[in-house]
C-alpha cells in the first residue's frame, strides 16, 4: 500500500474512532450510574442528524441555531426517555429495564421510519465542509470534516473531564456512580444527577450524530443501530463505567475497523463482525475491560 493511501486510511480511522468515542461516552456514563445498557442511545445520534436535516432543509435555520437546537432537543429526549421508561423500573430486576431499553430503541427507530421515511437522505453540509474542501497535510489530502472531527471530540472531552472532576455536579455524578443509594442518603439529588448524566451523554451523541451526517453525508432512520451497538461494545472494551475507557475503546475500535479492512479487503464483509468478536472476547477474557475496575457481589 502506498504511504499516502495509508495516511488517508489512518485519517479516516481516527475520525471514525472519535465519533465512536463520543457516543461510547454516553453509554458508559449511563451504565456507570444506573447499571443499564441504554440501547436507545445510539438512536439519539440519528435523531440529532434528522433535526439538523429538517432545520436546514425545511426551515432554513442558520447552522449554529440548527446545531444548538439539535443538541438541546436530543438532550431533552434523553431526559424524557429516562423519566418515562427507566425511572419507573429502577427497583425492578435488571433484565426488565433492559427490555424496556430495547423497546425504546425500536420505538425511536420505527418512529423515525414513519416520520422521516425509510429512504436515505443526503445530509446538508456547511460551506466549510463542502465536498471537495480539503487540506493538504504532508502530501495527503484530508477532507476538512475528517480533520475537524477529532479536534471537536478532544475539545468536548476536555470540557467533560473538567466537569466531572472539577465541579460539584461532577463530584455528585461520580458519587452516584460509585454507590447509588449512599449518595442519595448523603443528600445528593439522585434524580437530578441522573437527568444531567443523560443530558450530557445525549448531547455528546447529538454532536456525534451531526458530525456523522457531515462525514458520511447520507442519513437514514436506522443509521444509529449498528454504530450504537459498536459504541456500546467500545465502552465495554475500554472498561464500562469509565469515561477514559470509553474514549480509548472507541478509538481502538474505530481505528481497527478501518485499518483491518484496509489491509485485508477480502474480509470486509465481516466488518461489522469485528466489533462483536471483540465484545465476546472482552466479556470472556477480561470483563472489566481495558481500564475498568471489578465490582464484587456480596453473598
Amino acid at each position: 500500500m502506498q504511504l499516502s493511501m495509508f495516511f488517508q486510511h489512518l485519517a479516516n480511522a481516527i475520525s471514525l474512532g472519535s465519533l465512536y468515542s463520543l457516543v461510547a461516552i454516553g453509554y458508559t456514563m449511563v451504565y456507570g450510574i444506573l447499571r443499564l445498557i441504554n440501547f436507545a442511545h445510539g438512536d439519539l445520534l440519528m435523531l440529532a442528524a434528522y433535526i439538523v436535516y429538517y432545520a436546514r432543509g425545511m426551515f432554513h435555520l442558520p447552522w449554529p441555531i440548527s446545531i444548538i437546537l439539535a443538541i438541546l432537543l436530543t438532550a431533552g429526549t434523553g431526559i424524557l426517555v429516562e423519566r418515562a421508561a427507566y425511572r419507573p423500573l429502577r427497583d425492578s430486576p435488571r433484565t426488565t429495564i433492559l427490555i424496556s431499553a430495547i423497546g425504546v430503541s425500536f420505538l425511536v427507530e420505527n418512529l423515525g421510519l414513519v416520520l422521516f421515511g425509510g429512504r436515505p437522505q443526503p445530509f446538508p453540509l456547511p460551506a466549510v465542509f463542502d465536498s471537495g474542501s480539503a487540506r493538504e497535510i504532508g502530501g495527503v489530502r484530508v477532507e476538512n470534516i475528517t480533520f475537524a472531527i477529532p479536534v471537536v471530540t478532544l475539545v468536548l472531552l476536555y470540557v467533560l473531564l473538567h466537569i466531572v472532576h472539577k465541579t460539584k455536579t461532577g463530584m455528585a455524578m461520580r458519587a452516584v456512580a460509585r454507590d447509588f443509594d449512599t449518595a442519595g442518603l448523603m443528600g445528593v439529588d439522585v434524580n437530578r444527577i441522573v437527568a444531567i448524566t443523560f443530558a450530557i451523554g445525549s448531547a455528546l451523541a447529538a454532536v456525534g450524530g451531526i458530525m456523522w451526517g457531515m462525514k458520511f453525508p447520507q442519513i437514514n432512520p436506522l443509521m444509529g443501530m449498528m454504530p450504537g451497538m459498536k459504541c456500546f461494545i467500545a465502552a465495554v472494551f475500554g472498561g464500562i463505567g469509565n469515561i477514559q475507557g470509553a474514549v480509548v475503546g472507541g478509538f481502538i475500535l474505530g481505528v481497527a475497523e478501518i485499518m483491518i479492512v484496509a489491509f485485508l479487503p477480502s474480509i470486509s464483509g465481516y466488518r461489522d463482525a469485528f466489533a462483536f468478536v471483540i465484545l465476546i472476547g472482552t466479556l470472556l477474557i477480561r470483563p472489566t475491560g481495558l481500564i475498568g475496575e471489578k465490582v464484587a457481589e456480596k453473598v
Partner: peptide, 19 residues
C-alpha cells in the same frame, strides 16, 4: 456471564452467525 452481559453476548453471537 450474568444478566445484561449474557444478553449482549448472545446478541453478539447471533449477529456473528448471521454475518
Amino acid at each position: 456471564l450474568r444478566g445484561d452481559y449474557l444478553g449482549i453476548a448472545t446478541l453478539g453471537f447471533a449477529e456473528i452467525i448471521r454475518l
